[in-house]
Design a protein around this nucleic acid. Structure first.
Lengths: 230, 230
DNA sequence: GCAAAAGTGTTTCAGGTACACCCATGA
DNA sequence: TCATGGGTGTACCTGAAACACTTTTGC
């Protein structure tokens, strides 16, 4: 489709770069890849792709994340646009970063071979190409702000989880330790978790009860003007 | 410059749209314009422009805001990228929104004629083209979140201002009334304002003392791990 | 029986919120 | 002198933070 409206304007390649995050072994993990093409082929890089003319930028991000994780319906939000002149060594590319929070148990490990991707601990993130480390840093800022006030952290866990696990999730988001009693008190009095009968005995002899997030109760609280806050 | 790296990729026009905000008569104001070209020529629109190949997207936003306000060194931050397929009726355009907070007293009124721009009260914002109303809404959300925790509100005022003015600024950002005594107590005990000797007598017979924001003291507080919060 | 993680209450303190009256001045 | 907006202090209450011991169970 050629236009009669906007003429003599410069046009640009637009990429999406995705910060795909998971939670395992009490640490935040991030999915990165060896870059499969030049320039900087073989360097560590976020998962990315170019936007096609037939899709919105949100759809492009969904496509990239879907291809690399094999999961649908992923929590995915835009971080921001990165548009410095020489941010990409190849040529001028404006990139829109998105972050995804996934349940790593749904991730198909065979995909890591195909795409040469690797889960690395956030605390041990290597140097990435271009401005990708900045994108991760911006994402962590958003995550810290947003997880404090919206229950997005649950996207990183399975349907059911224990309170010790949930606490260690928040501890690794904020990079600080939290008092166990205060944490449980706050969450349980909020009344958005449901205690199950089963226990997870994988990390202690006694076992910890499973809980699950009750979205309906959460929505009711919000309607009443109350606020989630951690 | 033609590239040998990324071939057969689609390219896009990229625009910046700027939410330029000021504060006058105890209300937030926003600068909008009659669109000077088709499609939708004559409709209300945010101030925008296309990004050139020779500038970063931040620079493009600075250029647009500079041209329209005649002010340098404006507080300007990215809102986010908007990339729906048919968001622009002309053709496919990805837009990056930026918001600017300016001191309206520095604004050159003659520029409104030249650019057919108008200051309108935020509470009386008309229907704008495309997704521009959504951009404004997203901006207000960011402003409310950010003004609560960083002293960005001062960008909307001149060097000196009275406490009643400052309070009404925050009231119009949050769209709710604030108790006068509590507001003053919080700000003054924070010790980031300096009281001047002059009074502003324009809005009362008694007159209200001018204050000014002391950035050095503010920076010291932050270094000490304390936090601004309103 | 012991090591290792799960679970449980109370006190203290700071900060937020509610609230009403006097002051200065120009007209 | 009066109308208008500027300026001030206290009491209460809620929510955050600090803090230590008991329970369960596999080995």
């Amino acid at each position: 489709m050629t236009s009669t409206f906007y003429q003599n304007k410069d046009s640009f390649l637009i990429a999406v770069d995705c910060i795909i995050m998971g939670f395992r072994e009490n640490e935040l993990q991030i999915l990165i890849a060896r870059r499969p093409f030049e320039p900087l082929k073989g360097s560590w890089s976020l998962m990315g792709g170019f936007v096609n003319a037939t899709e919105s930028i949100d759809e492009a991000a969904e496509r990239v994340v879907g291809e690399l994780t094999g999961i649908d319906n992923i929590f995915l939000e835009q971080v921001r646009a990165y548009g410095e002149l020489n941010r990409d060594l190849g040529e001028r590319v404006v990139s829109i970063a998105y972050y995804a929070l996934i349940d790593m148990d749904l991730f198909n490990p065979s995909l890591t071979v195909k795409n040469d991707t690797h889960w690395v601990r956030l605390t041990q993130l290597p140097k990435l190409i271009f401005d990708h480390n900045k994108m991760v840093k911006d994402t962590i800022n958003i995550l810290q702000r947003k997880a404090a006030v919206k229950p997005i952290g649950f996207n990183l866990l399975g349907e059911q989880f224990t309170l010790p696990t949930l606490q260690s999730l928040y501890e690794s988001i904020y990079q600080e330790t939290i008092d166990k009693r205060n944490f449980r008190k706050k969450l349980l009095t909020m009344d958005i978790l449901e205690k199950l009968d089963e226990k997870d005995k994988s990390s202690s002899k006694r076992g910890a009860f499973y809980y699950q997030f009750n979205k309906n109760k959460y929505d009711q609280l919000i309607e009443q003007g109350l606020h989630f806050s951690l």
